[in-house]
C-alpha cells in the first residue's frame, strides 16, 4: 500500500512540474516580452529595455522559469507587471474564499447525489426511479451560471428572500455569510449533484448484481439494508473517482459563479487580471487553480488505495 501511495505522490510531482512548464510556456513564452506589453505600443526601445531589466525578463528563459518556479514553491508569485503590487497576499486572501465556496458546493452535491442516486438505483424499475433519472438528465443540461442567474432572478430579485450577490467573511458576520452563500453554493452544486447522481446510480446498480449482495439477501436482509451494509462501500470507489473529476470542474465552474454573484475569489481575481492584461497575475492564479486540482486528485488516489482492499493487497 505504501508503495502505491508513494507512486501516486511521484506522479503528482511529475504532473505538477509539467503543468508549471505548460503554464509558463503559454503565459510567458507565447505572448512575448511582458516588458513590451507593459510599456505599450508607442514605447521607445529604451523604455522597454529598462522595464525588462526591472521585471527581470531580459534574462534567459530557463533562468526566468527557475525564478518563477522556486518562487511558487516558497509561495511567492512575484510582483505584478501592471499593478506593481505583490501577487501572493492577494492570492492567499482569494483562495480561501474560493475554497469555502467550492467545498460547500461539493458537500451539498454529495448530500443530494448519494441518497437520490441510491434511491434511483433501488427503484430503477419503478416510475419514481425513472423520474429521478430524468431530473438528473435535466440538471446536467443547466450550467451552474445559468442556474445562478435563475436563482438570483427568482429568489433574490423577485421574492427578496436572500441577497442577490456579495460576500461576507464567515468570521465577520456568520449569519450574513450564510445568507449570501446559499445561492452561489446551490448554483454550483446543482449540475454536480446531477452528474454525481448518475454515477452513484450506475455504481449501486452494478453492485446490486454482485454475489455477495445476493448472499446478504439470502441471509434475510431487506434489499435496502443489504445495500447499506455491504453494497455502498463498493459503490463508493467509482463515486470517489467521479468526485475528484467533478472537484476540478467545480473549481473552474466557481470562476463563472463568482462573476454571477460578485464574490471576491480567485475567479474574480483571474478575470480582473485578464481584463487588465496582467499576465503574471493570470499565470499565478491559473497555476494555483491547477495545483489545487492536482492536489485533490492526489488525495483521492490515496483515499482510493486505502478504501479498496483489493488495491491494498496488491504490490
Amino acid at each position: 500500500m505504501l508503495i502505491r501511495i508513494f507512486k501516486n505522490l511521484a506522479r503528482f510531482i511529475v504532473t505538477f512540474l509539467a503543468a508549471t512548464l505548460v503554464v509558463f510556456g503559454i503565459m510567458r513564452v507565447l505572448p512575448g516580452d511582458p516588458a513590451a506589453i507593459a510599456a505599450g505600443e508607442n514605447a521607445t526601445p529604451e523604455i522597454v529595455e529598462q522595464l525588462a531589466k526591472e521585471f527581470g525578463t531580459d534574462r534567459p528563459l530557463p533562468v526566468q522559469f527557475w525564478d518563477w518556479f522556486s518562487g511558487l514553491l516558497r509561495g511567492d508569485f512575484g510582483v505584478s507587471y501592471v499593478t506593481r503590487t505583490d501577487i501572493s497576499p492577494l492570492v492567499l486572501d482569494k483562495v480561501q474564499v474560493s475554497l469555502i465556496l467550492v467545498t460547500l458546493a461539493m458537500l451539498l452535491a454529495l448530500a443530494i447525489a448519494i441518497p437520490l442516486g441510491t434511491l434511483a438505483a433501488v427503484r430503477h424499475k419503478k416510475a419514481s426511479g425513472a423520474l429521478i433519472s430524468a431530473l438528473s438528465q435535466l440538471g446536467i443540461a443547466i450550467p451552474g451560471f445559468l442556474l445562478g442567474i435563475l436563482l438570483v432572478s427568482l429568489v433574490s430579485l423577485r421574492l427578496g428572500w436572500l441577497p442577490a450577490n456579495g460576500w461576507t467573511p464567515p468570521g465577520e458576520d456568520f449569519g450574513d455569510f450564510i445568507r449570501r452563500i446559499i445561492l452561489p453554493v446551490t448554483a454550483l452544486a446543482g449540475v454536480q449533484s446531477a452528474i454525481v447522481m448518475r454515477y452513484v446510480r450506475s455504481a449501486v446498480l452494478e453492485t446490486m448484481h454482485e454475489d455477495y449482495l445476493r448472499t446478504a439477501r439470502a441471509k434475510g436482509l431487506s434489499p435496502m439494508k443489504a445495500l447499506l451494509k455491504h453494497g455502498l462501500r463498493n459503490a463508493a470507489i467509482p463515486v470517489l473517482t467521479v468526485t475528484s473529476v467533478q472537484f476540478a470542474a467545480l473549481i473552474i465552474g466557481a470562476v463563472v459563479i463568482e462573476r454571477v454573484f460578485v464574490i471576491p475569489g480567485l475567479g474574480s481575481m483571474l478575470l480582473t487580471a485578464v481584463g487588465n492584461r496582467d499576465l503574471l497575475t493570470v499565470q499565478s492564479v491559473v497555476m494555483v487553480l491547477v495545483a489545487i486540482t492536482l492536489l485533490i486528485n492526489l488525495i483521492v488516489d490515496v483515499l482510493y488505495t486505502i478504501l479498496d482492499p483489493r488495491l491494498r493487497a496488491a504490490d
Binding site: 503559454i26 503565459m27 507565447l30 476540478a248 485578464v274 493570470v282 491559473v286 487553480l289 492536482l294
Partner: peptide
C-alpha cells in the same frame, strides 16, 4: 489538469 474554460481564459488573456 487544464479544463477547457481555464485554457480559453489563458488564451483570451494573451
Amino acid at each position: 489538469a487544464f479544463p477547457a474554460l481555464l485554457l480559453a481564459i489563458m488564451f483570451a488573456a494573451i
